[in-house]
């Protein structure tokens, strides 16, 4: 049972981890389409919960060849930049966003747009909750456009990445969303 974000944030950090809804490979393989017709304002997306460790941060630095020491050199972070610890990368958070939108719109929808700000310094030990909520929807060109409020909250409720997104879902009985995606003309 998926807990509403508000209820999730009332739990202790360790309890929040038990409500992680990040899909496994087979969940994504067998993902059933959410149609535009099924979406309602206020509907919440699954919550992806992360517990980043220094090793996760190091793996991300290595994968994208980001050599900034604030992400892996604790002594530098504490004593040079006066940070509270090594810092979770904004680039990692930014990369979670299209994944999150992709997963929700699979198998035939499209994660078209997102915009977000980076706030708060996140450190290992923070429990992070990627969340989304439907704010409005409209049809255009036989496609269903869904506007979302998105963010990544810490376990103590601090919003580190407030933003919005637009995804495209097929209409029940409607045509496939074109791929590559071509937005309808205004």
């Amino acid at each position: 049972m998926s807990l509403p974000l508000e209820e999730l944030l009332k739990l202790e950090a360790e309890e929040i981890l038990a409500h992680n809804e990040r899909p496994k490979a087979d969940d994504l393989r067998n993902k059933q389409q959410i149609y535009y017709d099924d979406v309602e304002e206020g509907m919440e997306l699954p919550k992806y919960i992360y517990n980043p460790t220094p090793t996760h941060l190091f793996r991300w630095s290595a994968a994208i060849e980001n050599f900034h020491r604030i992400h892996y050199d604790l002594d530098f972070g504490l004593n040079h930049d006066r940070n509270p610890s090594i810092l979770v990368h904004g680039s990692w958070k930014q990369s979670v966003v299209p994944q999150y939108l992709k997963d929700w719109t699979l198998p035939k929808g499209w994660p078209w747009k997102a915009q977000f700000e980076h706030r708060a310094m996140l450190v290992p030990g923070d429990i992070l909750i990627m969340w989304g909520r439907v704010t409005s929807k409209y049809e255009k060109g036989q496609m269903g456009f869904v506007e979302l409020e998105i963010g990544m909250k810490t376990h103590d409720g601090i919003e580190s990445m407030p933003g919005t997104a637009t995804v495209v879902l097929p209409l029940r009985g409607g045509p496939d969303i074109p791929y590559p995606f071509v937005p309808p003309a205004d």
Binding site: L28, H56, S95
Partner: peptide, 25 residues
């Protein structure tokens, strides 16, 4: 492989060729 493991996205569309070829993409 390295990128998707680092972002923690296990989607088989990234690594299962036969499955990926059967998808929308």
């Amino acid at each position: 492989r390295r990128f998707t493991q680092a972002v923690m996205d296990p989607d088989p569309r990234y690594w299962d060729k036969e499955f990926a070829e059967s998808t929308h993409y």
